[in-house]
Each structure stands twice: as C-alpha cells, then as structure tokens.
C-alpha cells in the first residue's frame, strides 16, 4: 500500500488533481444546466459560503467540540479496555482460551445493533454515547494487541531468557516494543471506528455534534449544511489520521528501511 503522505513528485500530484477538477466542472455545469433540483445540488461556491457561515456563527465549533469530546472519552475507555484484554490474552494462553472465544463470538454482532439496547439501558444522555463509541473502539484494539503480543518472535524470547529478562522488565523492554507496530495499527482502526460511531450515534439521537447537525439539516432539507458536514467530518478524519501517521513515524524510527507491506484493513 503506497503511503499517501509520502513525498510524491509534483507531476504525480498534478495527475491527482485531474479527477477532483473534472468532478468540480461536472458539478458546476450540472448546476448551470439545471439538471437537478437546487434542493438536491447546490453550486460548489455555495458550499464554501455555507462552511464560512457555519464557522463564523460558532455553530460549527460547538458541534465539532461536542463530537470530539465524545470520541476522546469513548475511545479512551474502549481502547484501554481492549489493550488490557489483548495484552492478557497475548501473555497467557489460558486466559486466551478462556476469554478469547466469547470476545470473538461477540464481535459477530454488528455494533450498531447494540445502540437501541444501550439507549434503553442508559438513556439518551452522554454516557450512553460513550458506551457505544467505546464498544466500537474496543474490538480493533483487542485483536491487534493480542496479535502483536502473542506473535513476539521466539528468537527474541530466547534472547530475553539468555539475558535474564523477566516480569515487568521483559514486558516493557521486549514484548511491548515488539508488539508496538500492531498496537499502533489497533489505535488507528480504533480511532477510525470511534469517529464513525460518534457520527452514527449523533444521527440516531443527539442535540449537539456533527452527526446531529447533518441529521437536522437533512430533515429541513438544507443540503448545503449536509454537504458541509461531510466535508468537516472528512477533514477531521483526515487530521486524526495525519497526526497518527506522524506519531507512528516517531515511535517506529527503528524500522528505518525495513518497511514491511502494510496491512490493509479498512
């Protein structure tokens, strides 16, 4: 998988803008030719106006902060639970045999199916949303941490034995660094899912947040606001990914030229 953030030659970059440019031209001509109702398709520039209006009125900031707040809490709860469980499962094969089947089986339930249950149990307030997002963040973290911890090469385990590394020292100096690439993958998927789940939870029932903003706009047929919402959640998703890439590069400097084929899980 080619890394999107790698340095790309400017010629290649130029090729990359052709498609968006064509889309823009088609969009603008569709509007000018009045192919679709203005209720369904707004001119590209109106979108910029709307974004500017939403940003300057403060509405956007409020909703962004509400969504981010939910993501941070939900992610922290779900990802730390997933990390700890994955760690224990990776370290102890008994615990793996004990808890693994249940965790794998429970993953078969699409997490959105749990939303009505969570609402019935915890109401529609913030806590219910944290729980829902945490469930989304949990699974990628548990499986990736488990995979990373349980697949530490025998070569390194032997080395640790020769140099008498045990317990906490063994965990922090050998196991965790070796599992780090997969743990970071887990964090990335986990955050990605959290961001998707917060939007879902807010569309389903909330009075703040970007998902709520889009759902409310849809009810009032404000397509410009819906599309602005898409741009904003997409940009934030992009930003989250970008920051994680930088952190990943920092943490994994040692992988200098041994770039293994990245795993593709969406």
């Amino acid at each position: 998988m080619k890394n999107f953030f790698q340095r790309i030659e400017w010629k290649d970059k130029l090729l990359g803008v052709i498609v968006p440019l064509l889309v823009l031209i088609a969009w603008q001509s569709a509007v000018s030719l009045q192919l679709f109702s203005p209720l369904l398709l707004i001119p590209p520039l109106t979108l910029v106006d709307t974004l500017w209006y939403l940003a300057s009125s403060g509405e956007l900031t409020t909703n962004i902060l509400a969504s981010l707040n939910r993501v941070v809490f939900g992610f922290l709860i779900g990802a730390s639970a997933g990390f700890l469980l994955g760690l224990f499962m990776g370290l102890s094969s008994f615990f793996d045999q004990f808890a693994g089947p249940l965790i794998k089986a429970s993953k078969q339930v699409p997490q959105f199916a749990l939303m009505p249950l969570i609402i019935l149990w915890f109401g529609v307030d913030e806590f219910a949303k944290f729980v829902f997002i945490a469930i989304g963040a949990f699974y990628p973290m548990v499986f990736n941490t488990y995979q990373g911890v349980s697949s530490v090469s025998k070569r390194y385990r032997e080395l640790a034995q020769v140099f008498d590394y045990k317990g906490f020292r063994y965990l922090t100096k050998v196991i965790l660094p070796s599992a780090l690439p997969l743990i970071i993958t887990g964090v990335r998927h986990s955050l990605g899912l959290s961001w998707m789940f917060v939007v879902g939870a807010e569309i389903f029932g909330a009075d703040t947040g970007l998902g709520y903003m889009m759902a409310a706009a849809r009810n009032m047929f404000q397509i410009d606001v819906v599309m602005s919402g898409l741009v904003v959640i997409g940009s934030i998703g992009f930003g989250i990914n970008f920051i994680l890439q930088i952190i990943e590069k920092r943490l994994l400097v040692w992988r200098v030229s041994t770039d293994q084929g990245a795993k593709c899980k969406s």
Binding site: R155, Y156, L159, V174, S178, W254, R255
Partner: peptide, 9 residues
Amino acid sequence: DHRLLPWLT
C-alpha cells in the same frame, strides 16, 4: 542471526 532487537539502538 544477529538477533539485535530492531527497536533498540
């Protein structure tokens, strides 16, 4: 195999 830990200098 040299078995140097790749994450350590």
